[in-house]
């Protein structure tokens, strides 16, 4: 089973990012489960999206306690609660202009950073970084396929479809390039 936690703030599109990932894996024939929790039901408060992917039906109805990937929309969300279950091989993808070493003090995880905000702004998406970050996730894991991901981003973007698809591809390619260094 592959397990993701996507952490953002209300209004940033963290839940949508989780829904996009779930839909892509569903289209690829996997069993998926995705849900979000939010404390305040208002903009600015923390929103967690949980995604499980497996080859067999998923029966668990509880929080993810051993994530393979944590996607963090904003470094201010990197607290002990979010990271308490991260292990050495947990991939922590942070939306930040800083290099990964900047976050070494958080603990021994596989930290990767991407300046998703810069990519989003370049593509005229303002502060909406979710499509860039799901692209980066696919780039890091080598799955789901970029083609299916772009198809889903295109289907699920309420506005600015081309810009969202472009951001997704940019996120994917930047991570692939960085990884190849």
């Amino acid at each position: 089973m592959l397990q993701f936690i996507v952490q953002g703030r209300g209004g940033q599109g963290a839940q949508m990012a989780g829904d996009i990932l779930a839909n892509v894996f569903f289209r690829e024939g996997k069993y998926v489960q995705a849900y979000a929790t939010y404390g305040g039901a208002r903009r600015g408060t923390a929103v967690s999206s949980f995604i499980r992917v497996d080859d067999q039906p998923i029966r668990l109805r509880c929080n993810i306690e051993d994530p393979d990937v944590i996607v963090c929309f904003d470094p201010s969300l990197l607290n002990d609660v979010l990271l308490k279950d991260a292990k050495e091989d947990t991939l922590v993808l942070i939306n930040s202009a800083q290099p990964p070493e900047y976050f070494n003090g958080l603990g021994r995880f596989r930290i990767v950073t991407i300046d998703a905000m810069a990519i989003a702004q370049e593509n005229k998406l303002g502060r909406i970084v979710n499509t860039t970050l799901v692209g980066a996730v696919a780039g890091l894991l080598g799955r789901p396929s970029l083609d299916v991901l772009c198809e889903v981003v295109s289907d699920m973007s309420p506005v600015k479809v081309e810009q969202n698809v472009k951001s997704c591809k940019d996120g994917y390619r930047l991570i692939r390039k960085e990884g190849a260094k």
């Binding site: 839909n23 569903f26 489960q33 995705a34 849900y35 979000a36 109805r61 509880c62």
Partner: peptide
């Protein structure tokens, strides 16, 4: 949440 807002097949 665990069911009401969880995407399921």
């Amino acid at each position: 949440f665990y069911v009401s807002h969880a995407l399921d097949i």
